[in-house]
């Protein structure tokens, strides 16, 4: 390809350069102004409004592409009892007494209190996959517990009187200091567990004993430890990190 050559007066050329520089500066100022406007403008749940809308838009795009239907890839089973990273003690500061521990389950109709054995008698599911923290690190872990789906079916919770699922599930720690909410589609996922074992051993207190959520299709912030209450709603329940600027969906 040949480059085009033309003859031009120096006056016309000066005009062309001036116009280009002017447009360039205008472009820079506009770009900077848009950035500043987003960054310093009003916030929605701890993040600039446009960034919040961007999270919601991305959520729509990936939900449309069925991101909550795929499986988190299987990984080799780690050694039994292998130690793993402790991160976050929100909601775990109160003393924990296993003998009188009950999980409140609220279906919107009749609330129930379930002991841990009420969960352990349900069909046990186990698998190994990556645990991915929103900070960036990841670990291969082996989980065992009951599928959330199986739990809902066995105790007949999660559905409205008309037989349809509620849109959201909310979970909180007994002291209510940490709480998450999730979309029903993700909670029905095959790998979403109410777990009592990791790497072949009972959960320790710092890892969320006696029962924790494990949802590997989302960032670790959603896998709430030491479940105190499970409830269902059509209104999105509060979510600790989503109130602090993070993406509510946080799904892979």
């Amino acid at each position: 390809m040949k480059l085009k050559k033309i003859k031009i007066t120096s006056r016309k050329l000066r005009y062309r350069l001036t116009t280009s520089i002017f447009l360039g500066v205008l472009f820079l100022i506009t770009f900077g102004a848009i950035f500043w406007h987003i960054q310093k403008g009003p916030e929605l749940d701890g993040t600039p409004k446009l960034l919040r809308y961007s999270f919601l838009w991305n959520e729509k795009v990936w939900m449309m592409l069925k991101s909550s239907k795929r499986m988190s890839v299987d990984k080799p089973v780690p050694k039994k009892g292998e130690k793993f990273r402790v991160n976050g003690s929100l909601g775990l500061r109160e003393a924990f007494y296993p003998e009188n521990y009950f999980v409140k389950v609220n279906n919107g109709r009749e609330p129930a209190e379930l002991s841990i054995s009420a969960f352990k008698l349900l069909p046990k599911t186990n698998y190994s996959t990556d645990f991915r923290c929103i900070e960036g690190w990841s670990e291969e872990l082996h989980y065992a517990g009951v599928r959330f789906r199986d739990f809902m079916e066995y105790y007949n919770v999660g559905k409205k009187p008309d037989g349809k699922y509620y849109a959201y599930v909310g979970l909180e720690t007994p002291d209510r200091r940490y709480y998450v909410s999730l979309d029903m589609e993700s909670m029905l996922h095959d790998q979403t567990l109410l777990a009592w074992e990791i790497n072949g051993e009972e959960l320790t207190t710092e890892h969320g004993a006696p029962l924790r959520l494990v949802i590997p299709i989302k960032y670790g912030i959603k896998s709430l430890k030491r479940i105190g209450k499970i409830f269902f709603s059509d209104v999105q329940p509060p979510d600790y990190w989503a109130e602090r600027g993070y993406d509510w969906y946080s799904g892979f």
Partner: peptide
Amino acid sequence: RLAEGMGWHFL
């Protein structure tokens, strides 16, 4: 500024 970083990155 992790939350903010993610917000900008994914926009």
